[in-house]
Amino acid sequence: MKTGVMPVGHLSASQVHAVLLAATAPPPLRSARPWRFQCTPDSVELYADPLTTGTDSEQRERMLDCGAALLNLRLAIKAQGSHADVRLFPTAGRPELLAVVQPHGYETIAPHDGELVAAIAGRQSNRRPFTAAVVPDAVQRQLRRAAEVERAWLATITADQVPQLRDIMRRTEVPPVTPGPGGGTDLDVEPGRLVVVIGSLHDSALGRLQAGQAMQRVLLTAAAAGISAALSSQAMALPVARRELRQLLGGGLWPQIMLRLGHGTAVPSSARTPLEDVVISDEHPFAASRPGGARRRGSR
């Protein structure tokens, strides 16, 4: 079956296949894989599918998922010895086109980025209870820097903020849409455990896409250091709760996703989505229903 995979720039079809496998590896926050990719002779294009439906919380999570896929794509292109030139939202009037990534020239991947690439395949959200072992300060600094590299921020929930956070989460408590392995709950937040929030400067599609890339870089950095992570967007599910969380964190920036980080037992890998389901081709054109039954045209 044709998957739409083709040579891109100086990357061969097999190299492009490898980078797309890496890009589609992140377990999504919801059950659907919202990302779509299209290969052209000189670039890989990333689309959100669909972008125009769902609640604000669903839209935010969709952009975070696509940002995670984009970060993996960038790292995987580096692993093939090429520089990834990225343009975000490159075409006015086409909000579903999130990024155009062009492999340009040759670039040797840095050792740290190589460790992140190695962590891509095994990175899973771990909702099993964590041990009491603390995350070292040096690792916490690495995680904070990982978010900043992607033009986002990482705030640590302090012990005196935990009661307020638990109160916010109780008022928004719902069963997880996609329960993680082990069945832990989002209320497993205790003083002395590392809980962080990744946020953005602006609560826009661009800010959320950048926060998604930051989220994935933080998660891969944690995985490379042997740290497990459980993702939660429960405290951001309702606008009023999200505003309260924003005020709890100082009121300056926008929270996008919360992570519990610690030492936990391994969880099984999630099922992979076949590339033909997420790569646009003649056999699998990019189209989603619009109001009134209209169809959205494919890219180029």
Rank of each mutant, 00 (worst) to 15 (best):
R60K: 10
L187E: 03
A32T: 04
L73I: 02
A287V: 11
S289A: 14
Q161W: 11
T265Q: 13
R260V: 05
S233Y: 02
V16C: 02
A132R: 15
L259D: 03
W35R: 01
T185M: 06
Q256P: 04
A266D: 09
G184E: 01
L70Q: 02
D65Q: 07
D113M: 06
Y106C: 12
T273W: 00
V218P: 00
L21H: 12
S281N: 10
A288R: 08
G122I: 06
M236H: 00
T221L: 04
Q102C: 11
R171L: 09
A23H: 03
L29S: 06
D42C: 08
G182R: 05
D186C: 06
R297E: 15
A155T: 11
L20V: 03
A25L: 05
E190D: 15
R290M: 09
R62F: 04
P50L: 09
G184W: 00
T53F: 09
M236P: 00
A205W: 05
R272M: 01
R217S: 00
T131S: 15
V135Y: 07
S43K: 09
G298Y: 05
H112V: 15
T273R: 05
D186W: 00
H10E: 01
L248Q: 05
Q59L: 09
L154R: 05
T172S: 08
R290V: 10
S281G: 10
C66N: 03
G262I: 00
G81P: 11
D42H: 08
V86P: 06
Q102L: 03
G252F: 14
Q210V: 04
D49F: 06
L165G: 03
N126M: 10
I109W: 12
S204K: 05
A133T: 13
R166S: 04
